[in-house]
Design a protein around this nucleic acid. Structure first.
Length: 108
RNA sequence: CCAGAGGGUCGGGCGGCCGCGUGGAUGCUUGCAUCCCCGAGGAAAGUCCGGGCUCCGCGGAACGACGGUGGCGGGUAACGCCCGCCGGGGGUAACCCCAGGGAAAGUGCCACAGAGAGCAGACCGCCAACCCGGUUCGCCGGGAGGUAAGGGUGAAAGGGUGCGGCAAGAGCGCACCGCGCGGCUGGUGACAGCGGCGGCAUGGCAAACCCCACCGGGAGCAAGACCGAAUAGGGGCGGCAUAUGGGUGUGUUCCCACCCGUCGCCCGGGUUGGUUGCUGGAGGCGGCGCGCAAGCGUCGUCCUAGAGGAAUGGUCGCCCAUCCGCGCAAGCGGUGGACAGAACCCGGCUUACAGACCCUCUGGCGCU
């Protein structure tokens, strides 16, 4: 699993499927390039909070990706998690359930 | 014990499970695996000052322009910071606050109100020594006028208080205070003290222009260096050519220096990316010495974050603090950490901050 670093990858992910959830929005875009590597990116805008808040949300997402995507993520696709304010306080078990649900939704 | 003043420290703790980054060790296939150590702050923040470091620029002198600083002495690599002291203001006190050079170099401004606001000013008052008339001889009325005491306006009314003086008044005279000038003494100095002269002349604003003194190249680690394909451009050396000209330099002046065209040879290039700069330093802690202090010296000891869409965490349990509710109380139930996340590194300043603790001092009350 590789982390997204390029702006154009994030922009491309906007064209993929999206699944809004209470604490985040999941974007999934299949690259269709024979490479099975799964890639993940995180976006938390300044609107959500200061640096402490944004960093904590990104860390929770990273833990979430480690727990959930490595098991049920889409191979050969880019995933982007966009933070929403509730991502800071929502119960972690709930977050995991949300992500599983979102993955099921986009893979239909 | 209550109220207050100054300074400092900390700012969750312990333990499971699962992870991340630098470094080290071991294993093997250049990459991965296993184990171990270490891994955010007092402000890491705002980016407001001062430096180190790096690159660029820079011929010299004088003058000017622009920006900054502004009591004195000390500390420092330096500062707009810190310490001590002086002056002014506040508080019973501990202590706190001050952009604190120059307003008799010049220009400008001082709204409204008010009679008058800087070569002052008679609105209400006060007076009646002078002149005229009257008189019960106390004085009364009118006139020419005098007057900055009192009222009123204002942020401010042209020294203040008291006594004398006067028709009433007035620095008109005197004393004290203030102010100015010059002197002596003390202090490195800001300044302070003392006595002398002057009869008041000098309203405020310099965070208005300005004057004085002192200081000041520019840009920043996305600086910069190395590795690295092509093209354009670039640089060096040598030959030839050469002008009374043109251009460059610090805004101006003077002096001074350099450059120009062409041919040949050689060097060389840097977009994405990678490596480096990158953390050991004006370093932390402790002892001793000097200093009122800021701080300085010396000895010992320690190594204590280095990421790069950016590690330093995720989650669960227990405990302590906080806050909320109930209760007279012991306690019970709930809540569950303030401000905030390094990005080249230091010295400061400013701003944000739930709460906890320590030291010193002041005033009051009580006890011995």
């Amino acid at each position: 699993m590789v982390t997204l670093t390029k702006r154009r990858d994030f922009l491309a992910a906007n064209a993929g499927k999206r699944a809004p959830m209470p604490a985040f929005v999941l974007l999934v875009r299949r690259r269709d390039d024979q490479d099975a590597t799964m890639r993940v990116g995180y976006t938390v805008t300044k609107k959500i909070g200061n640096a402490v808040v944004r960093n904590r949300i990104k860390r929770r997402f990273r833990a979430l990706a480690h727990d959930v995507l490595s098991v049920s993520g889409v191979a050969g696709a880019d995933h982007v998690l966009i933070g929403r304010p509730d991502a800071l306080t929502r119960d972690f078990a709930q977050l995991k359930a949300d992500l599983t649900k979102a993955l099921a939704k986009v893979s239909r």
